[in-house]
Each structure stands twice: as C-alpha cells, then as structure tokens.
C-alpha cells in the first residue's frame, strides 16, 4: 500500500533531481535553462498530484457529480507556469546577449575570458 500510495511522488522526486542535476552540472547555458524547466515542471506535477482525488473529476461543476479534484493547486500551478515561462524567456534573452558579448555559451569559456580580464 505504501509503495502504491507514494509511487507517484517518488517519480516526481526523481524528475526534480534530474532537472536539478542538469542545472548544476551542465556547462551549456541553454541546457541549464532546459534543466531549470524540467525542475520546475516536476514541481508542478507534484502540486497537481496533491490535488488528485480518487474517483473525482475535473473541477468543473456539473449535475450529478459530487466529487471533484482539488481546484486550488491547479490555480497555483497556472500562476507558476506563467512564472516559469517568464523566467525562461528572460534567461534565454540573457543567453542570446552572452553569446553576442562572449562568442560562447559554455560556462568554462566565459569564466576563462572573465578571469583574463581581471
């Protein structure tokens, strides 16, 4: 029962960690942003998992249905998705500018060029 009841959360944790790993360990700036996206999306999946109710339906009121899944996390995640889009857009804009300024989007090369200047 425990394994079944928590299986969903464990998958989510695994996804989050893959995302986080990409962000920290990868040197490519675009890939870091992709990792960030995966990390955030997994958190969204976690929230939505909270709201699921066995036997419930989508939270749109209809005749004859009394069990709905919890609408609140849905609302929160709608907001959070927009926030993540905003972050992605800004992050990528920075990547574009960094490419123009440094001619590279690899973490090490950029760091190297900076160190030379100092």
């Amino acid at each position: 029962m425990m394994i079944l009841g928590l299986y969903n959360y464990w998958i989510v944790v695994a996804l989050m960690m893959i995302g986080l790993y990409i962000v920290i360990a990868q040197g490519n700036l675009v890939k870091k942003i992709v990792g960030l996206n995966i990390f955030q999306t997994s958190v969204f999946i976690f929230y939505i998992s909270l709201s699921k109710v066995d036997g419930g339906t989508a939270p749109i009121l209809a005749e004859g249905i009394s069990l709905y899944s919890n609408p609140l996390p849905h609302v929160l995640i709608l907001t959070a998705i927009v926030v993540s889009l905003a972050t992605t857009a800004l992050g990528l804009a920075l990547v574009v500018r960094i490419k123009e300024a440094y001619g590279s989007i690899e973490e090490e090369k950029i760091q190297m060029k900076d160190d030379q200047e100092c």
Binding site: F39, L90, V95
Partner: peptide, 22 residues
C-alpha cells in the same frame, strides 16, 4: 559584459531558490 554573465548566474541561483521555496 560581465554584467550579463552575473545576471545569468543570479537568474539560475535565484530560480533554484524560488523553486525550493515553492
């Protein structure tokens, strides 16, 4: 141009922080 790089690093760190809070 280092401002861009600093901002990018801040963005990554800040977003990880915000996601942790989330």
């Amino acid at each position: 141009r280092r401002a861009l790089w600093a901002a990018y690093q801040y963005l990554i760190m800040g977003t990880i922080g915000a996601t942790f809070i989330l």
